[in-house]
Amino acid sequence: MIVAEQKPFEEIAKMVEIFDKVLILGCNECVTVCLSGGEKEVGVLATSLRLYRKQGDRPITTVEETLVRQCEWEYLDEIEKLVEDVDCIISMACGVGVQFVAERFPDKWVIPALDTKCAGGAVEHGLWEERCGMCGECILHKTGGVCPVARCSKRILNGPCGGSQNGKCEVKDVDCIWDQIYKRMMALGRMDQLMEIELEKDWSKARDGGPRKMSREEVMIGE
């Protein structure tokens, strides 16, 4: 899932300071699961904004709504009426959702309430970690199912570097993922595979190649 974290409240308040009626739009997918942009967070943000603005003598009207998904046109169609009479939309989705909203409603000012962090998951209650760097060409079959692209601080493909110490990365508070890859490969009896030099990665398949697309012709609806 996409992991995102709410921006500091003051920043959000500053971004809407010139508006008097805003739509706060949540998303029921990833950001609900990571407790940053679901229905509950929409409610909390709306209340906080109203209180803050009342204290500042410029009250604000908030409209609350949470969609099944912000990254799909059909759900965005549902809020056409709501959007009409607000000054701006605060999207509490990931960066994808924010952009779908902006694209669907070109006349409205759209504000992101979250900082989108990574593709990851909850490893324990309240702790989310990055797992995939979306490199466009997965190599997990070569590394025992553990991703060095997203999880090594230097995205080294032939690790570990000389900074690995006691399972920790030279970068503070980070686990050395190559330590884990080696231990796993050793336990699985696949050390010989790690002795092969992993060649330069084709980063053109990653974001470095420019924005990416994926298409499935069989499901496309022709004009």
């Binding site: 601080s153 230097k154 995205r155 080294i156 493909l157 032939n158 690790g159 570097c161 030099i197 992993e198 060649l199 330069e200 980063w203």
Partner: peptide, 14 residues
Amino acid sequence: ANVFDVDSLQLIRM
């Protein structure tokens, strides 16, 4: 930004 387009092994080989 953190480049690491190639790692030290790939650099040596290059």
